[in-house]
């Protein structure tokens, strides 16, 4: 009953301490500002979020690292959207999303939202409640990666 043993150990130990030996997940946020230079070229700058107001575009960045001694299989990262942030996109990170509080998952283009009249409409970025990345292959020992998604302060 190795599984049971590990679970009971996990219950006894602070979760963070155990986690530190396995997978580290670091979360940071930036404000994305677009400036146009004299030649009309647009530059996208990421700034520390010192001042944040409604309408600002936020970039949430998740860095993960398998610091454990074993590959991490069935690796899934889930990020509930903060209530004051409207999902925009997840770049090219091929995220799954949920528009119903995490019950169902899929590509945004596959999901629908129930309307008051009983019909369903295609889901929009603003409907997203959770973002998720589900990895096909185990994260090897020492493997790292970076995920991101954008949102707009409501």
């Amino acid at each position: 009953m190795r599984t049971a043993l590990v679970l009971s150990l996990a219950a006894l130990l602070p979760g963070q301490a155990l986690a530190a030996n396995q997978v580290a997940l670091n979360n940071s946020v930036f404000v994305e500002r677009v400036s146009t230079d004299a030649s009309g070229k647009q530059r996208v700058l990421l700034e520390e979020p010192k001042v944040v107001v409604p309408g600002d575009r936020l970039v949430f960045v998740l860095n993960y690292r398998n610091a454990g001694a074993q590959p991490a299989d069935k690796f899934v990262i889930t990020n509930p959207m903060p209530s004051a942030v409207r999902f925009a996109d997840a770049g090219d990170t091929q995220s799954l999303v949920s528009v119903d509080g995490g019950k169902q998952w899929g590509l945004l283009s596959e999901l629908t939202v129930a309307m008051a009249d009983g019909t369903r409409r295609a889901a929009q970025p603003a409907d997203v409640t959770h973002v998720r990345w589900a990895f096909q292959k185990p994260i090897p020992v020492g493997g790292t990666g970076k995920l991101m998604f954008r949102g707009v302060v409501k």
Binding site: R2, T3, V6, L7, Q22, V23, L25, N27, V29, V52, L58, F60, L62, Y64, N66, G68, Q70, P71, A72, D73, K74, F75, V76, I77, T78, N79, P80, P82, A84, V85, I139, V153
Partner: peptide, 14 residues
């Protein structure tokens, strides 16, 4: 605005 992500995985121990 508070944001936290969660990773789930199996490193051989469940």
């Amino acid at each position: 605005i508070s944001n936290t992500a969660t990773a789930t995985f199996d490193a051989g121990g469940g």
